[in-house]
Amino acid sequence: MRLGTVVSAAFLFLLITNVHGSFALEVYAPEEITVENGTQALLPCTFKSSEVTRKETSVIWRYIEDGGSSKGSTTVLMFTGGIPYPGEGRFKERVTWAGDLNKKDVSIKIDKINFKDNGTYTCDVLNPPDVNDLPKEIKLRVVEKGLDNPVQDGEYVTIDKQQARGLLNDIENMYEKVEGFKNNMWASISQYQEELKQLKAKVSKVLQM
């Protein structure tokens, strides 16, 4: 079965169930994820429904490039009838189903992520008679390897000028906070020393009586 036929059937089903659906289905996905260039990306998406999953449960993943609109979206993967159908475009050989309907997990994985994959991915779930009125959007940000990874002892990481300015600003803010803490600490110590002097003087006066 061609993907175009599957998608058309899914849209017809969505139109019908939108009339009678209860809209009790809720979809959950992160607003943004960051993935290193050349690695595999997991796009997580789950849902909650008052209805049990069945053969009619369908999922449509779409991609919208940065600056684009939903009208120009690309189908990344269609899941229906218990079978995943990769899209016909550049994701066809790279996308795999990573979900489990029994756990209401409809996530996907995309291999060999590159900078052209930056954009918005939408997760749309149909579980009749429950229908999700709005798909969830995930903003995918692709970065060079190592930039967003924690640095281990003895390792080096390359940063650009903008990141360096931000780091320098953070260091300066931390320095000011430490200086302020130090000044407050010395003020407290000086006050404590003065109180001790006054107490010592009072005790000495009592001893001289």
Results as ranks from 00 to 15, higher is better:
T39A: 04
T120M: 08
G87L: 06
W97M: 01
V59K: 07
V35C: 04
S49Q: 05
C123G: 03
T158P: 02
K139P: 02
G72R: 09
A164R: 11
K48R: 12
I189L: 10
D100N: 10
T158S: 12
K197Q: 14
W97L: 00
D117V: 03
I171F: 11
E56R: 10
F11L: 15
L15V: 15
I159W: 06
Q163G: 04
M185W: 11
Y28V: 09
V35K: 01
N149R: 13
R90V: 11
E36M: 01
F13L: 14
N18S: 15
H20V: 15
V95R: 02
G68H: 08
Y192H: 09
M185I: 09
I60T: 09
I16G: 04
G154L: 04
K182F: 11
Y121T: 03
L199D: 13
Q191P: 00
G4C: 11
K103M: 06
R94H: 12
A98E: 06
R90P: 04
V7T: 14
F115T: 11
E195C: 02
Q163Y: 06
D148M: 09
D133G: 08
S22F: 07
L147Q: 13
Q40A: 03
P86F: 01
K92T: 07
D160E: 01
I108D: 00
P129M: 01
F13K: 14
K202R: 12
K103C: 01
A187G: 14
P44C: 03
Q193H: 10
